[in-house]
Deep mutational scan, measured.
Amino acid sequence: GLPEGWEMRFTVDGIPYFVDHNRRTTTYIDPRTG
């Protein structure tokens, strides 16, 4: 799974992105792969 505090969501286009609730940021880069 994802690191603690992270969540995976999808855009309206079906593109996955990642929400970091710890820092309240979003990124398209998987936190597991950097």
Rank of each mutant, 00 (worst) to 15 (best):
R23H: 14
I15Y: 08
T33K: 08
T33R: 06
T25S: 09
R24G: 15
T27K: 03
T26H: 13
Y28W: 15
D13Y: 08
P3T: 04
L2A: 03
E7T: 06
D13A: 13
R24E: 13
D30A: 00
R23W: 07
V12F: 11
R9V: 07
L2S: 03
W6P: 01
D13G: 10
G34D: 15
E4M: 09
P16N: 05
G1E: 15
I29E: 15
T33H: 09
N22K: 13
F10A: 03
Y28K: 10
D20V: 03
G14F: 02
F10Q: 05
Y17I: 11
T27P: 04
Y17P: 02
T27D: 07
L2R: 01
E4V: 11
P31R: 00
W6E: 01
T11Q: 06
E7F: 04
W6I: 06
E4A: 15
R32F: 07
T26E: 15
E4D: 13
R9W: 08
R24H: 15
E4G: 09
P3K: 05
I29Q: 13
D30V: 00
L2H: 01
R24N: 15
T11G: 11
Y28I: 12
Y17N: 04
N22I: 15
P3A: 04
E4H: 12
I15M: 08
P3R: 05
V19M: 08
R9M: 09
T11R: 05
G14L: 05
G34K: 11
L2V: 03
T26N: 08
I29T: 10
P31F: 02
R32T: 06
F10Y: 12
D30T: 00
N22P: 07
E4N: 12
Y17F: 11
D20H: 08
D13K: 11
R23E: 14
G5W: 05
P31H: 02
G1K: 14
Y17E: 08
W6F: 07
Y28Q: 13
R24L: 10
F18G: 00
R9L: 13
G1D: 14
I29A: 06
I29H: 12
D30M: 00
P16A: 09
G5Q: 05
R23L: 11
M8L: 10
V19P: 04
F18W: 14
Y17L: 09
Y17A: 03
R23Q: 13
P31M: 01
E4K: 11
N22L: 14
W6S: 01
D13N: 13
P3I: 03
P3D: 06
T33P: 10
L2W: 07
P31T: 02
H21F: 08
T25V: 14
R23N: 15
P16M: 12
G1H: 12
F18K: 00
W6V: 07
D20R: 02
M8Y: 01
Y17T: 05
E7Q: 07
T27G: 07
P31D: 02
R9Q: 08
P16L: 09
G1Y: 10
R24Y: 10
D30K: 00
G34P: 13
T25Y: 14
G14P: 00
P31I: 02
G5V: 02
V12R: 10
G14S: 04
T11H: 03
P3H: 04
E7K: 02
W6T: 02
G1R: 13
T25M: 13
I15Q: 09
F18Y: 10
G34R: 08
G5I: 04
R32E: 07
V12I: 14
T33V: 12
T33N: 12
G14D: 08
G14N: 09
P31S: 01
L2D: 03
T11A: 05
T11W: 02
T27H: 11
G1W: 11
T25G: 07
T11M: 02
T27W: 02
G5L: 04
T26R: 09
T11K: 01
V12W: 12
L2Y: 03
V19Q: 04
T33Y: 08
P3L: 04
N22Q: 11
F18Q: 00
R23G: 15
D13M: 09
F18D: 01
D20L: 02
T27L: 02
N22V: 15
N22S: 10
G5K: 05
E7W: 01
G1I: 12
P3G: 05
R24S: 13
I15N: 07
H21W: 10
L2M: 10
W6N: 02
F18R: 00
P16F: 05
G5F: 06
P3M: 04
Y28E: 12
M8R: 08
W6H: 01
G34H: 12
F18L: 01
Y28R: 13
G14Y: 03
V12T: 13
H21T: 11
V12Y: 11
R23S: 15
W6L: 04
G1L: 13
D30F: 00
V12Q: 13
G1F: 11
H21S: 10
H21L: 11
E7G: 03
T25H: 10
I29W: 12
I29F: 10
H21A: 08
V19A: 03
G14W: 03
P31L: 01
H21D: 08
R32K: 04
T27I: 11
V12P: 14
D30P: 04
I15D: 08
E4S: 12
T26G: 08
T27V: 06
R24A: 13
P16I: 10
E4P: 14
R9Y: 10
P16V: 12
R32I: 07
E7M: 03
G34N: 14
P31A: 01
Y28G: 10
V12S: 14
E4T: 10
L2F: 08
R32N: 07
D30Y: 01
D13T: 13
G34A: 14
D13R: 09
P31Q: 03
L2N: 02
T27N: 06
M8W: 01
Y17R: 03
F10E: 03
R9G: 06
T11P: 01
H21Y: 09
V12M: 11
T26Y: 15
V12N: 12
R32W: 07
P3S: 05
V19S: 02
D20P: 02
D20I: 04
L2T: 03
P3Q: 03
I15P: 05
T11N: 11
R9A: 08
G1Q: 14
T26F: 14
R24T: 08
F10K: 06
P3F: 04
L2P: 04
T27Y: 04
P16R: 10
D13H: 12
I15S: 06
F10N: 03
R23M: 10
G34S: 13
G14E: 05
E7R: 01
R23T: 15
L2K: 01
M8D: 00
G5H: 08
V12K: 14
M8F: 04
I29R: 09
D13Q: 11
F10M: 11
Y17D: 05
G1V: 13
V12G: 10
E4Q: 11
F18T: 00
N22A: 12
P16Q: 09
T33A: 09
P16Y: 05
H21P: 06
D13I: 05
R32L: 07
F10G: 01
